[in-house]
Design a protein around this nucleic acid. Structure first.
Length: 737
DNA sequence: CCAGGCGAGTTTTTT
DNA sequence: ACTCGCCTGG
C-alpha cells in the first residue's frame, strides 16, 4: 500500500514510525484520525503485523466505532482478525471479566454508573448521619472519585482532613467501598483502578497482555488520567511500541482527573520518543483558524504549535449580541434557515457551555418545525423505565447488587415500602450481607408483619425465577418475561397519560435493542455492559442536519457551520472557573475546541439578559472576555450594539411597562415597537433594564431593576463609582449614556 | 403503604 | 421551571 500520495510529509512520517515510542502532537483538524487509521493499515499491510496484535484505545465508543469502520475499509478483506479498537473503559471491562477473580471479585460484577454511585453515597451518608448542610452527597462523591483516581485511601483522606466535612467524606468513602464490594459492583473509576491493581499485583498478567498487543495506540492522550497512564505503562511492559496522539490545546477534562502533565511529560517517560507535530489544518478557513489560534495563544500552559492552512480566507466570523435568550434562539433559527436555503444538505452545529441552554433553543426550533437532534442531555439509558428494566436484568445476573435490587424492589408497587427497605438495609449492614441476603434472613426470622413477609416472599420468588431464566433465555426473551412477570407495562397503562405512552414506546425500543443484541450473538452480560458504557456522545448522528450539543460533546467532530451560543462572562467562561488561572485556561481551550469545529462559517452569540432559574430575575450579562481575544479585523458584528438601550422606543408609560415585561420575560408576548431613538438626550420611556445612563452627581451607571410605571417608575441603578442607588425616574436627572 | 402537596435547591463540563 | 425529598392524611 502506498501512502505517500495520500499524506503530507509529517503525516507520512507519523504513519511510518511504527517502532518505539511516538508522540504525535496533532493540532485541530490536522488529519489525526486519518493518521491513526493509516498507521494501523500500514502495520498490517507493510510490516506484517497481525491485526489482532494491535490495540488502539480511544475515549468514546463513537470514536472507537468510527475508527473501526475506517480501518475495516482500509484493510483488505479476508483478514485473520480485527485490531482491538476500544475505549479505556470497555477494554478494562473485557480484561476484568476474564481476570478479576484474582482480586476476589466474581466475574459477574455489576457496573455502577454515576446515578448508582450517588444512591450508595446517599445511603451511607444517611446511615453515618452526615450533616448534609456541610457536604452534599454529590460533593462527597466527587471527592471520593478524585481520591480514587489519585490512589488515595479513606485513611489518607482522614489524615489530611482539616475540617469536619473531610472527615465525613473519609468515613463515607470507607463504607462506600465496602458496600460496593458487598454488591459485587465496580464503579466507573474502579474499572480502571482494578485493571491497574491486577497488573500491579500480578506482573505476569501485565506481561501477558503487553505481549499480546505489541503495538499500542492511544488517542486523545491529553485527556488521560493517572490510572489510564499507569495502564499504558503496564501495557508497554515488554515493548515500547506506543504511539500516543494528542493536543494539549484541546485538553478539556481536567475536572475529571485528566492530567495534562501526561502529555507534557511523555518525553520523560519514554526517552527514545520521536515527536511529530501535525500543524497543517485541513478543516477550517484561514479566518477561523487565525481567530482560534489568537484565542488559545493567551494560554501559558502549552507546548505551542503554529497551525496553518492552505484553505481560503473565507467569511468573517459573525458576532451577534441578542437582547435575551429568545432573541438569540430566533437568530440561531434564522441563520439555520439561511444556510439551508443556500445548501439544503448543510450540516450545522449549535454549541453551548451548559446543557440547560439547550431548552430555549429547542423550543424555538421546534416551533419553526425545524428538524434538529440534541446530542447528550439524558440518554436513552438514563430514562427511569429503562433503568428499571435494566436493573431487573442486572439483578437477574447478580441479585447481590443492592443498588439495583432496591431500585426495583417496589417498582411496580408491591407493598414493600420504605419502612421495610430501611429494615432490610439495616439488617444487611448488621449481618454483613447484601440486601438480597437480608431478604432471605427476614423471611426466615419472620419478625416482620405477616403482610410484609408475604410481599417479600413473592418478590424473592419473582427474582429467583428471573435468575433461573437468565441462564436459559435469550436477552429479549428474558426481558419479555420480566415485563410480564412484573406487570410493568400494565402499571404504565393504568397511568394512561401521554407520558406513560412514551414510556411504553421506550420499552419497546429497549426490547428491539435486546433482540438486536441477541442477533449479534451477545450474552446478557455483554448487553448490560454495553448499556452501562454507552455515553451521550455516542448518540451523535452525522446525518443529522442540525445538532445541538455542549462544547465538550462536540470535541472530535466537524461541521461546515458552527454557532457558539451563550458567550457571556460567568457562563462561558463559567463563573466557577474564572477565579483560578488554570481553570480559566481550560475554559479558553474549550472555546478553542468549539471554534475549530467550524469548517466554513462560525457564528458567536451572546445575550444581554440571561434568565437562570426559572422565571426568577434576569441577570445582566457581560460579553465573554474571550470575545475580545479575537482580533477585531476577523469579526463582523451584527444586530444592535450594547451601548444603545436594550429596547428602543418612544411612547406612553404603558409601552414602558410592556417593554419591561418583555425584557423580564413576562407573559406579554407582543413585539415591542422598535422606533429608533431620536437625537434627544432625554427619553421618557427608555428606562429599561440594562440601559446605560449618566447622572449629574453619580456619573455613569446601568439600570438593574425597574419597579412601577409611569410617574411612579422607580429605578435601581448601579453606578460605576457610587454603587447601587434607587431613584424615581421622574425626578432623577438621568440621561442616556 | 402510598398519593399528593409543599418547600428547597438547582445548572458545568462526562467516560 | 423543574426535580427531589419530606410530610401528611387516608
Amino acid at each position: 500500500m502506498d501512502f505517500a500520495k495520500l499524506l503530507n510529509t509529517e503525516q507520512l512520517h507519523a504513519v511510518e514510525s511504527t517502532e518505539g515510542p511516538v508522540l504525535i502532537l496533532a493540532g485541530a483538524g490536522s488529519g489525526k484520525t486519518r493518521v491513526i487509521t493509516y498507521r494501523v493499515a500500514h502495520l498490517v499491510e507493510n510490516r506484517d503485523v497481525r491485526p489482532e496484535q494491535i490495540l488502539a484505545v480511544t475515549f468514546t465508543n463513537k470514536a472507537a466505532d468510527q475508527m473501526k469502520f475506517r480501518v475495516r475499509n482500509l484493510l483488505r478483506a479476508a483478514r485473520s482478525g480485527d485490531p482491538l479498537i476500544s475505549t479505556f473503559h470497555s477494554f478494562c471491562v473485557r480484561l476484568l471479566r476474564r481476570e478479576i477473580e484474582a482480586l476476589n471479585y466474581t466475574r459477574d460484577f455489576t457496573i455502577y454508573d454515576e446515578a448508582d454511585q450517588l444512591q450508595v453515597v446517599k445511603g451511607v451518608s444517611k446511615d453515618l448521619k452526615v450533616d448534609e448542610r456541610l457536604v452534599t452527597p454529590k460533593t462527597i462523591l466527587a471527592r471520593i472519585s478524585h481520591a480514587k483516581n489519585h490512589g488515595k485511601t479513606p485513611q489518607n483522606l482522614l489524615d489530611d482532613s482539616w475540617e469536619p466535612s473531610w472527615e465525613y467524606t473519609a468515613n463515607v468513602f470507607n463504607e462506600y467501598e465496602k458496600r460496593l464490594k458487598k454488591s459485587n459492583a465496580l464503579d466507573f473509576d474502579d474499572l480502571l483502578i482494578k485493571a491497574v491493581e491486577l497488573f500491579d499485583k500480578f506482573p505476569p498478567a501485565a506481561e501477558k497482555y503487553s505481549t499480546r498487543f505489541p503495538y499500542l495506540m492511544v488517542d486523545e492522550y491529553q485527556d488521560t488520567n493517572h490510572m489510564q497512564y499507569r495502564l499504558v505503562r503496564h501495557l508497554t511492559r515488554v515493548h515500547d511500541n506506543v504511539c500516543v496522539v494528542g493536543d494539549e490545546d484541546q485538553s478539556i477534562y481536567s475536572w475529571r482527573g485528566a492530567d495534562i502533565q501526561n502529555i507534557l511529560s511523555f518525553e520523560k517517560d519514554f526517552p527514545r520518543v520521536r515527536i511529530i507535530k501535525l500543524e497543517q489544518n485541513y478543516r477550517s478557513t484561514k479566518n477561523i483558524l487565525a481567530a482560534a489560534s489568537a484565542v488559545v495563544a493567551h494560554n501559558e500552559l502549552r507546548k505551542g504549535k503554529t497551525l496553518w492552512t492552505q484553505n481560503p480566507s473565507g467569511d468573517l466570523i459573525t458576532y451577534m449580541e441578542a437582547t435575551d435568550a429568545e432573541e438569540e434562539a430566533m437568530y440561531v433559527a434564522d441563520r439555520i434557515l439561511f444556510h439551508q436555503k443556500a445548501d439544503p444538505s448543510v450540516r450545522i452545529a449549535v454549541l453551548y457551555r451548559t446543557n440547560f441552554l439547550s431548552r430555549v433553543l429547542e423550543e424555538k426550533l421546534r416551533r419553526y418545525n425545524m428538524k434538529y437532534r440534541i446530542v447528550g442531555g439524558f440518554s436513552f439509558y438514563e430514562r427511569a423505565e429503562i433503568k428499571d428494566l435494566i436493573s431487573y436484568l442486572t439483578v437477574s445476573l447478580n441479585p447481590d447488587d443492592s443498588v439495583h435490587l432496591l431500585r426495583v424492589i417496589n417498582t411496580p408497587p408491591r407493598g414493600i415500602g420504605k419502612t421495610t427497605t430501611d429494615i432490610l438495609e439495616e439488617l444487611a449492614v448488621e449481618r454483613g450481607t447484601s440486601v438480597w441476603g437480608a431478604i432471605e434472613i427476614a423471611i426466615e426470622q419472620a419478625r416482620l408483619p405477616m403482610r410484609t413477609i408475604r410481599a417479600l416472599e413473592a418478590f424473592h420468588a419473582l427474582i429467583a425465577e428471573f435468575v433461573r431464566a437468565a441462564e436459559e433465555l435469550s436477552n429479549s426473551a428474558l426481558l419479555e418475561k420480566i415485563i410480564a412477570g412484573t406487570k410493568y407495562i400494565e402499571m404504565l397503562e393504568e397511568e394512561g397519560t401521554e407520558e406513560s405512552e412514551n414510556r411504553i414506546e421506550n420499552i419497546r425500543e429497549l426490547l428491539t435493542a435486546a433482540e438486536e443484541s441477541h442477533e449479534r450473538g451477545e450474552k446478557l452480560r455483554e448487553f448490560l455492559d454495553h448499556a452501562a458504557l454507552v455515553s451521550d456522545q455516542d448518540a451523535y448522528d452525522e446525518r443529522s442536519p442540525i445538532s445541538l450539543m455542549t462544547l465538550h460533546t462536540a470535541k472530535g467532530l466537524e461541521f461546515p457551520v458552527v454557532m457558539i451560543t451563550g458567550l457571556e462572562d460567568g457562563l462561558f467562561p463559567h463563573s466557577r472557573s474564572i477565579m483560578e488561572a488554570p481553570q480559566l485556561e481550560e475554559e479558553r481551550r474549550l472555546f478553542y475546541v468549539g471554534m475549530t469545529r467550524a469548517e466554513h462559517k462560525l457564528y458567536l452569540t451572546s445575550t444581554r439578559f440571561r434568565r437562570y432559574f426559572g422565571n426568577m430575575d434576569q441577570q445582566i450579562s457581560e460579553p465573554s472576555r474571550f470575545l475580545s481575544e479575537i482580533p477585531e479585523e476577523l469579526i463582523e458584528e451584527v444586530g444592535e450594539r450594547r451601548r444603545k438601550p436594550a429596547v428602543k422606543f418612544e411612547g406612553t408609560s404603558y409601552d414602558t411597562v410592556d417593554a419591561v415585561m418583555k425584557v423580564l420575560g413576562g407573559a406579554e408576548k407582543k413585539p415591542a415597537p422598535s422606533v429608533q431613538p431620536g437625537p434627544k438626550k432625554k427619553l421618557a420611556g427608555a428606562w429599561v433594564l440594562g440601559t446605560r445612563v449618566k447622572h449629574p452627581k453619580y456619573g455613569y451607571g446601568t439600570i438593574l431593576r425597574t419597579e412601577g410605571s409611569g410617574d411612579d417608575l422607580k429605578l435601581t441603578v448601579s453606578f460605576i463609582s457610587h454603587g447601587l442607588k434607587k431613584m424615581i425616574a421622574k425626578y432623577a436627572e438621568l440621561e442616556l449614556a
